[in-house]
């Protein structure tokens, strides 16, 4: 019962946040803008061609096979690791700077 209540809280908060975002985007008018012909905006690597069932052909079937998949996964992992390392080093340096300031009495 307790867990169900917690799940309900999470879902309610998520719905509220999502609803607010949806309203914000639509009020700003951005959400109503349509892409002319479906080809004006193409995500990286997408061809924007519609398939027979009317869906866009971007990403369909994948690209690069297992090599591409491995590369993309590795790239994301490297980016996240670099961010983590930068943060850890930055906090270490600021910690050291604080220590030096304390020793200097500033």
């Amino acid at each position: 019962m307790k867990i169900l209540f917690r799940i309900l809280v999470i879902l309610v908060v998520t719905s509220l946040v999502g609803g607010a975002m949806y309203a914000l985007v639509n009020v700003a008018g951005g959400g109503q803008r349509r892409v002319e012909g479906g080809n004006s905006f193409r995500p990286e690597g997408g061809n924007g061609i519609r398939t027979d069932d009317g869906r866009r052909g971007d990403h369909e079937g994948g690209r690069g096979g297992m090599f591409g998949f491995g590369f993309g996964l590795l790239k994301n992992l490297v980016v996240i690791s670099v961010i983590a390392v930068i943060y850890l080093n930055a906090t270490k340096w600021t910690g050291k700077a604080k220590d030096v300031n304390k020793q200097l009495g500033t």
Binding site: V25, G30, G31, R33, G38, F41, R56, N76, V79, A84
Partner: peptide, 23 residues
């Protein structure tokens, strides 16, 4: 309807999430 804004939000929020995940 296909929307440029939602696509832009999707890309931007995903990149921001990656930054957040690193932190």
């Amino acid at each position: 309807p296909e929307s440029f804004s939602w696509r832009s939000f999707h890309s931007l929020s995903t990149n921001l999430f990656m930054l957040g995940l690193g932190l």
